[in-house]
Design a protein around this nucleic acid. Structure first.
Length: 491
RNA sequence: GGCGCUAUCGUCUAGGGGUUAGGACGUGAGAUUCUCAAUCUUAAAACCCGGGUUCGAUUCCCGGUAGCGCUACCA
């Protein structure tokens, strides 16, 4: 057990600390989600901190994009967003403390010198670790040089012997020989902290109790543990979360297509579904069966919060499965009240340039609900409801299997006559057209195909009669007439 | 290269010293239906390899292999 173990009775405080050098990607989103779930489950505090000390690569747009992604996912934070770029004094003070305590020292080596030495080391097959030359400069000499205006970075003096480790809540004991770690830079020569310093200073200053973050940080954690010790501070609980990989098993990146949370939003993924999916990627709720011996896959946010614990987190990396996401999303779409779904669909259609009188979207929503996996799918699924003119289709599709153009023409003619007079509700339409099939002596399958193609412009479409009802008499008749003309031209 | 971590169906995973190794997504087949979808039934599909420990290892230990991560005055 580490000597500095956090008092177990402290109210949990966790954070999500993205660096605004890119959009909120799925890996970050899941880390944020786990922190959020943990905070909500324990009644703790969720803090948002923007790690923007890399001025070159950080930007305001990225920051607002990240916040937008968080809001979309419903991950509300209790404190922040804090910006590291505005907390530089804290880091300088922390570095000074470390220097005063003999745990860090100024380093006058320039970037160029270091690069050169590293190159030489590689060429000679030697380890590339920093050679600690500035560590040997007497303190007074160093102070004099600084006073004379010489620029210096601050490096941590890593102990030459022993090992440093910590007990990870997910991975268990992780330990590394101190000789494996070089004297890393805490503060750059320009006074800006590196990640290693700023995380520790902030995590300490913000009173964090649990550090839940990606497993890519596991190897660097000992560097942070050393600082906690040097600062005589209590260690938080570290919980590293396995990484999310692309289908090719490499770390998910832009190469794999959509990786930003915003992209999924635009695709028509519902935030609840995305959250559900992300939660199940690398975490399994304990002891939840659906009563049939089947594990559940669909969890409400409430359930996720209730069930979330650190020990359900798995240790191995997970491949992001778009198919499963789509399936989960379709589950959520089908569970949605029609009213609500229809409201969500309005802007999707509008964006695609599909406009319709009020009530139209509400009317067609139940017809496509089971046929779409994303909101975006609604556009190709329902475009014919909006289009004044059907997109061109193959006239041969009008002909039922084992039939000919004459049969199709016959069917359409019958249909046209019927539609001109019957009440235009789906029940009546169905009754009338079924009766027509009987009188024509053909089965309903072949009977309805020409009509469906004529009316929808395609062979696969939502249920015919409901569709016709929504389309209205006029449109249906017009489209059937057009189909007859096309058929005639086939001869 | 060095160091660290990980390893159950194609994918996400459950499980655990003796099991028909369970579920979900996806895939195949069938049923149902006006097409598609949905739904139901069903099938194929996994314990990385080698040594131990043990009466017995997929499970525990060691080694190998593979994958991933870290190895910056990036985060």
């Amino acid at each position: 057990m580490p000597e500095n173990q956090l008092s177990p009775d402290r109210a949990p405080r966790v954070r999500f600390a993205p660096s605004p050098t890119g959009y909120l990607h799925v890996g970050g989103a899941r880390t944020a989600l786990f922190n959020w779930l943990f905070a909500r489950h324990t009644g703790g505090t969720f803090i948002l901190r923007i790690e923007d000390t890399d001025f070159e690569r950080s930007s305001e747009e990225m920051t607002s994009g990240i916040l937008e992604g968080m809001r979309w996912l419903g991950l509300d934070w209790d404190e922040g967003p804090f910006h590291q770029s505005q907390r530089l004094d804290l880091y300088k003070a922390t570095a000074a403390k470390l220097v005063a305590g003999g745990h860090a020292y100024p380093c006058f080596c320039t970037r160029e010198e270091l690069d050169q030495r590293r190159k030489d080391a590689v060429a000679a097959g030697r380890p590339t670790k920093y050679d600690q030359r500035c560590r040997r400069i007497p303190r007074q000499t160093a102070e004099a040089r600084i006073a004379a205006g010489e620029a210096a970075a601050i490096r941590f003096a890593v102990p030459d012997e022993g090992s440093t480790g910590f007990d990870d809540a997910v991975f268990g004991r992780v330990e590394i020989q101190n000789t494996e770690i070089e004297d890393f830079v805490l503060l750059r020569a320009d006074g800006v902290p590196t990640y290693h310093l700023s995380v520790v200073a902030d995590d300490l200053d913000m009173g964090l109790t649990h550090i839940i973050r990606g497993a890519d940080h596991i190897s660097n954690t000992p560097k942070q543990v050393m600082q906690y010790r040097a600062l005589d501070a209590e260690l938080p609980v570290f919980a590293h979360v396995p990484l999310i990989l692309g289908p090719d098993r490499t770390r998910l990146s832009k190469r794999h297509g959509a990786t930003s949370v915003t992209a999924y939003k635009e695709m028509g993924i519902l935030p609840e579904a995305f959250r559900n999916f992300l939660a199940l990627l690398g975490w399994t709720p304990g002891g939840m069966k659906d009563g049939n011996g089947k594990d559940r896959e669909v969890f409400s946010s409430r359930e996720l919060v209730d069930l979330f614990t650190l020990d359900g987190i798995s240790k191995s990396n997970a491949v992001f499965d778009n198919d499963k996401l789509a399936w989960l999303n379709s589950e959520y779409i089908r569970a949605m009240p029609v009213e609500e779904l229809s409201t969500s669909l309005e802007p999707v259609f509008a964006e695609a340039g599909l406009t319709a009188p009020p009530g139209k979207v509400r009317a067609l929503t139940p017809l496509i609900r089971e046929r779409i996996k994303t909101l975006r799918d609604a556009v190709p699924a329902a475009d014919f409801f909006f289009l004044p003119e059907l997109a061109p289709y193959d006239a041969a599709d009008l002909i039922p299997p084992k039939g000919d153009a004459a049969l199709a023409l016959d069917i359409l003619a019958h249909a046209r006559e019927l539609l001109a007079t019957t009440a235009f509700d789906h029940a009546t339409l169905e009754q009338a057209l079924r009766a027509a099939a009987v009188s024509l002596g053909i089965k309903t399958g072949p009977m309805f195909q020409p009509i469906r193609v004529a009316v929808c412009g395609r062979k696969n479409a939502p249920p015919l009669f409901e569709t016709m009802e929504v389309l209205g008499r006029e449109t249906c008749l017009k489209r059937i007439q057009q189909a007859e003309i096309r058929l005639a031209s086939l001869h």
